[in-house]
Design a binder for these strands. Structure first.
Length: 673
RNA sequence: GCCACCAUGGCUUAGCGGUAUAGCACCUCAUUGGUAAUGAGGAGGUCGCGAGUUCAAUUCUCGCUGGUGGCUCCA
């Protein structure tokens, strides 16, 4: 007999050799929702036999651990289905991920979305057959034998296992895979599975290795959760900023202009400029100076900053004077030679700026500086250009030309902590005003074992401590990430998720010892000696493009009144109200409110339908009642109404709402009942 | 950059080896209508671009451009 401690703390006696699954049934009953067991804190299959005293509890499929086991098992089922249809395909790896699972296959060429259906059908078939999933211990030689036709598995065996060490496989029906488990005990648990997409991946994430075919899928415990997940995916697609950007006419990307180059259309430009105004107010309050610098600079400048030629691949090619180009061409200079000569500094040219810092540095050094000038905070909405890989460009979130809400702070060493804190506060103010609470903070620290960092370690300790202190003052989740610092200093990054779960780095605050060194920046200290300032780079939004993209999805296009491209749409019921409508609209505009008038001859139902797509904060409906009494009828986005409001009262309330930058429109109180 | 898929009037979309649907938007006329589509008529496309195959290509092939999903990258 063995003594087993149950989750409620009680201890039961069982016959030695009982399986973990049998105990889970004993605890949870036959109708439990568990996929595996936790034995002494370790995940085990239901089939695991127990022969000594231990604690046991079930792992519910509705926990993070449980759903991961389900997904992992679904990945196995996928590989079983694929290999049964395509016997030549070689499974490589197939893990569970946050949103489902995938499996990578070698030798599965020409496999596209249209092939998914047959595979999914096969998975359902295997699931319906209720195949037992068995764990089998194997010796090294058995493993080599079993996977002899799959070099990828052999590579894993050779890499992960010590010589002479065995491992386990999981078998379901005829099929088996190298795996540590645990897994669900039967394929029947995997009925609610859907394959979602096909893409490619490199073996072990290495671009120089084989290209594999990756199949993605989702799996859910039951029909209802599957349905919920599928509709959540649909909902997310509706919020996609690329779709909303088109529907709401916020921005346009034109292939004749170029990939990843954003054309801000009038409605989107309003959002951007409101945000910029908002930031500018804070800049003034915090003692920043706004500056303007050009979009290009000499190659030499970027040689000095270290951007060229080191980051050449992610920059637009340099601009070279045309007479020089002609001369070189006449001399038979090849592109490769040209590139070398530019790298060596034999040819001067200009570059689209990939960062604003060199320009700001030149503003710093345009005058002799003393400690009394510090901290000197230079801010600019500076547009930079980077040659992102073509496959990576997407909507507003990954582009080739973007405007950073950039600033560089030139500070003394003992000002670092305070100034970093000031930067963080700005980020927080902005995120709070926009109701963006779902972000995480990464503090990038240096890797203690690496020597790639500039600056002495005492300074680094202070700067890292300043970053830590600043991050913890935020009151949100933050993590230290050793090795994630830039080579020139520690940093704090703000990361948010978009609707399809992709994470985007937005704001960043970085301490930099490197550039002041490279540019030999100086200031005269109170001691009369020359000292080197430290720079802080910071961009609370990151880039206007990316931030607006995330913001569109955050609000699902329903912007707060202060940001809405049009705040009020005035709709007349019949032509009797045209004059009144025009009067109201011009009064709104005179008050600085963004208003739009529709005095056409559509019915009011039609007008509401048409104007809804632009998501104004409010629509005003004007009929005889309103005209006769100098009032307006307010319609909120959700259809709620508030009739008989005197229009000057409406304007006052609206202005109050705009000026307070409320995150949600509140002029129409929700209906009672 | 790599793999797969995709590209038809402003938007959504049908279709096919013989120059093309429909809805919405737009314009005109009628209608003067109270909170998610009033009716009728009209205009608008060399089917992303460039080659090739063919008597004939929007439809087949190749290249390019752009997009989507991923991978890789991201100072």
């Amino acid at each position: 007999m063995i003594s087993v401690t149950l989750p409620d703390g009680s201890v039961n006696e069982y016959a030695s050799g009982i399986t973990a699954g049998e105990i889970v049934i004993d605890i949870e009953g036959r109708k439990h929702d568990c996929v595996a067991a936790l034995v002494d804190g370790e995940q085990k299959d239901f089939s695991a036999p127990l022969d000594s005293d231990c604690s046991v509890e079930g792992i519910s499929v509705f926990t993070d651990e449980g759903i991961y086991i389900l997904r992992h098992s679904a990945a196995h089922l996928l590989a079983q289905a694929v290999t049964s249809i395509y016997p030549n395909a070689k499974p490589t790896i197939g893990p569970a991920i946050d949103r489902g699972f995938y499996y990578d296959f070698a030798d599965l060429e020409d496999f596209g979305e249209s092939e998914l259906k047959a595979v999914q059908k096969k998975m359902h078939e295997f699931s319906r057959r209720n195949l037992a999933v068995e764990r089998v211990e194997c010796s090294e030689s058995e493993l080599n034998e079993l996977f002899s036709s799959n070099p990828y598995k052999i590579e894993i065996i050779n890499d992960k296992l010590e010589a002479g060490e065995g491992s386990t496989i999981y078998r379901q029906g005829e099929w088996y895979d190298l795996c540590l488990g645990p897994h669900v005990h039967s394929t029947a648990k995997l009925m609610h599975v859907r394959l979602t997409s096909v893409s490619s991946a490199f073996w072990r994430g290495d671009q120089s290795r084989e290209q594999l075919t990756r199949i993605y899928g989702i799996v859910e415990p039951n029909k209802d959760t599957l349905k919920a997940t599928m509709s959540a995916i649909e909902e997310a697609k509706k919020r996609d900023h690329r779709k909303l950007g088109k529907d709401l006419q916020l921005f346009h990307v034109d292939e004749d202009v170029g990939q990843g180059l954003i054309l801000w259309t009038p409605r989107g430009a309003i959002i951007r400029s409101c945000l910029q105004d908002f930031i500018s107010e804070h800049l003034t309050r915090q003692g920043y100076h706004q500056v303007y610098t050009p979009h290009i600079g000499k190659l030499d400048l970027y040689r000095k900053s270290g951007h060229f030629p080191y980051y050449q691949d992610s920059q637009y090619p340099p601009l070279v004077e045309k007479d020089m180009m002609a001369r070189l061409a006449n001399e038979g200079c090849s592109c490769g030679e040209l590139s070398n000569m530019m790298a060596e500094g034999d040819i001067e040219g200009y570059m689209l700026k990939p960062m604003n810092c060199p320009h700001h540095i030149k503003i710093y050094s345009s005058q002799a500086r003393s400690y009394r000038d510090l901290p000197l905070r230079l801010a600019e909405f500076g547009t930079v250009y980077r040659w992102e890989q073509s496959g990576e460009i997407s909507g507003l979130t990954r582009v080739r030309g973007f405007t950073q809400d950039d600033a560089h702070l030139f500070v003394t060493e003992d000002q670092i902590a305070n100034e970093v804190l000031g930067c963080i506060e700005l980020v927080q103010v902005i995120f709070e005003a926009l109701g963006m609470n779902d972000y995480r903070v990464r503090v990038g620290l240096r890797d203690p074992d690496s020597t790639k960092y500039v600056g002495d370690s005492g300074k680094w300790d202070l700067a890292e401590e300043a970053c830590r202190a600043a991050a913890s003052s935020l009151g949100v989740n933050w993590s230290e990430e050793p090795g994630e610092a830039a080579f020139y200093g520690p940093k704090i990054d703000f990361v948010v998720k978009d609707v399809i779960g992709r994470e985007w780095q937005l704001g960043t605050v970085q301490v930099d010892y490197n550039l002041p060194e490279r540019f030999e920046l100086q200031y005269k200290g109170s001691d009369g000696e020359m000292h080197r300032p430290v720079m802080i780079h910071r961009a609370p939004f990151g880039s206007m493009e990316r931030f607006c993209g995330v913001l569109i999805e955050h609000f699902a296009g329903r912007f707060p009144t202060w940001l809405a491209p049009t705040q009020v749409h005035v709709l007349t019921i019949s032509e009797k109200q045209v004059e009144y409508g025009q009067e109201i609209t011009s009064k709104l505009k005179a008050a600085g409110i963004r208003a739009d008038l529709d005095d056409g001859d559509d019915t009011i139902g039609k007008k509401i339908r048409m104007h809804r797509k632009f998501q104004p904060a409010y629509m005003l409906i004007l009929g005889d009642d309103e005209t006769d009494n100098n009032t307006v009828s307010i319609r909120a986005r959700n259809g709620d109404q508030r009739a008989g409001v005197p229009y000057d009262a409406f304007i006052d309330e609206l202005l109050e709402e705009i000026n307070s930058k409320r995150a949600t429109p509140t002029l129409v109180p929700p209906k009672e009942e």
